[in-house]
Amino acid sequence: MLNSRPTVRSTLKALLYIAPLLVISLAFTFWPLLEAFAMGFYRHYNFYLNQIGSLSLANFQFLWHDAAFQLALRNTLIFIIGVVPVSIGLALLLALSLHHARHFAKLLQTIYFLPLVTSSVAIAIVWRWLFSAEHGGLNGWLAIINRTPVDWLNDPRYSLLALIIVCIWHSLGLNIILLLASLQQIDRRYYLAAQLDGANSWQQFTNVTWPLLTPMILLVSINAVIVNLKVFDQVYALFNGSAGPANADLTLMYYLYQKFYVEDQPTIAAACGIVLFGITVGLTLGTLWVLRRHHYPQRGWSPS
């Protein structure tokens, strides 16, 4: 069996095995994807009758000049810049503490993981209470340190910050678990060797932990960027089905949703989807490029 080469017959047989899933994937994932992609270029399109007027770039021109789209793009970028670094920095800090915790490590891990398995709508509802202007928990703390209360969810100056806080907290769980797993993978003997080589705790972190953790940090970063570019349900639930006060929390995904479901403009929504797709691919490739630069030969490389 091990020496057998693929033949037409064996390939067909293999194809038969994967056919059920392949058919489902093609029909429900790839086809709609292609359709949606094409739809971004349709003009005078009747969604229900599938009548296409003509192909053009008019939808993208519309997006370019649309103030709401510009706002959504701006909000999304601010949101990403606000969420990703803080979330990963915090997750790294917590993962390191958990890694060195002697007691209750498992319990604490579970607690930090909980946000991930809780529905984002339930989370948003709890946070709505925390953010509430009069009885909210956050304002309670602000009162303790003698700061004027903030109307988190109704003040356009703070509502994007409120969304950022919720999403940082929500993404912590997965990031902590991934970083913790990666930390536990690092061979203890590297630390022994480093200590014998005279490294203090900080030097051990910068010279052993950080470089060996870099691949996972980049992976977590890519994932965080992709997930947060698509932020929608937290907005929807936190602001009760609106995009926040004065559209202050209008994200690209929310814009897309509005265009498609509310304003009945599927081609604009599709064009927005393409833009979102482009941003995602761009950021991912950028991160991969950085990852490539940090690559060192792993075991299994044959010596030249």
């Binding site: 590297y190 022994l192 060797a193 010279n207 052993v208 470089p211 060996l212 060192y296 792993q298 075991r299």
Partner: peptide
């Protein structure tokens, strides 16, 4: 060390 523990990076 027995398996050397060289820093892989």
């Amino acid at each position: 060390f027995q398996d050397y523990a060289l820093y892989p990076h």
